[in-house]
Simulated assay, not measured.
Amino acid sequence: MTGLPCKPLLTSWNPLTQLVRFRTRTPDIRKPIPPHRLRAVALKLTKPVYDTSLNPLLPIKPVRPKIIKAQENPFERILANEFYQILESSKVVAIFHRNPMDQKEIYKMKLLLHKSKMKYLWYSNTVAKLAMSGTYYEPLLPLYQSHTATVVSEENSVAKLLKLEKKMPGVILMGALVEGRLMSVTDLKRYAALPPLEVLQGQLVGILGAPAQRISYNLTHHQTELSSALSRFISDQTQPPQDEEKKE
């Protein structure tokens, strides 16, 4: 018994499988094989039927969707009137692109503008369109396309506005309306570099008055020279008798 080999009594048998393809012909796309009878009946029943009585030469009229006009919100009209009155009383109207900010950053920006006598305004684009359409401020509407904010000032403080922009990273200046003139950022920088208005007015008055002063000088120069020459001649004629009297 000890010399017999130890083999299991039951062994597992795995059959060998092999895939065999009997059809070697590739499918013919140009002349396909007719389907089965039941499949052919199903395809015949589900085939769509089109109306061929219509004349294909006639132009097909495009279907225009009905445009439903949105009703105007009375509250937005009130806000638009308020916004328009603020614009009328302001000398500088600056439009900024507003980046995502929290309320804490917005409060700091409002406080910074308030110290410079400026005001931060935020109205929706719909309110801005109602306020500016058909008015003097309509050229500003192309700037109100995305998230925008408006800064107004009753004083002509363009230089202060450009300095404050560097301290407000949450907004980007796009343009401004200064005393009725629309300016880009480059124009605002040039405008801020100019001297005050009183100095420019004085320079203009001096430039305009220079030709008149020159003409007046040229007209009176010969008369002044003649009168001074006559006065010197008279003084020379009257001087010798006085000297002779002193000598006697």
Rank of each mutant, 00 (worst) to 15 (best):
L194R: 12
I29P: 04
V127L: 02
S116Q: 08
W13F: 14
E244Y: 11
G175E: 00
C6Q: 15
E76R: 00
I95K: 01
D243N: 10
S116I: 03
K104Y: 15
L57Y: 11
P100Y: 15
P241E: 07
A193R: 02
I67S: 12
L141Y: 06
V20D: 11
N218S: 02
R214L: 12
A159I: 02
L43S: 05
L194Q: 08
M101T: 02
P169C: 03
F83S: 08
M168H: 03
K110T: 02
D187I: 00
P59E: 14
A212K: 12
E225I: 08
A94V: 06
A212S: 13
V171G: 15
S116T: 05
R39D: 05
Q201M: 04
T2H: 12
L130I: 08
A40D: 06
S116D: 07
S228H: 00
H36M: 03
N125T: 13
A176P: 15
T238W: 03
Q239A: 05
L141R: 00
R21E: 13
A40W: 02
C6W: 14
G209A: 13
D187M: 08
F22Y: 13
P8V: 09
K115N: 09
A149L: 02
Q71N: 09
P8D: 14
P241M: 05
M101Y: 05
K160W: 09
L121S: 03
L188V: 06
V92M: 06
K160Y: 07
L54D: 11
V92G: 03
K108P: 06
K163L: 15
Q239I: 11
I207K: 08
K189P: 06
H222M: 13
S235A: 13
A128S: 09
H114R: 13
I67N: 01
A192K: 01
Q85P: 01
F96H: 07
E165V: 01
L130D: 09
L57E: 10
I60M: 01
Y136P: 05
T220K: 03
R77P: 07
I172F: 03
E245Q: 08
R23Y: 00
L43I: 12
K61F: 06
P240A: 00
S90T: 00
V127Y: 01
E248S: 08
T238A: 11
P240C: 02
H147I: 14
I106Y: 04
L9E: 14
K104W: 04
L197D: 11
M132Q: 07
L4T: 09
I106A: 10
L162P: 00
E198A: 14
P169D: 03
V49A: 07
Y84R: 03
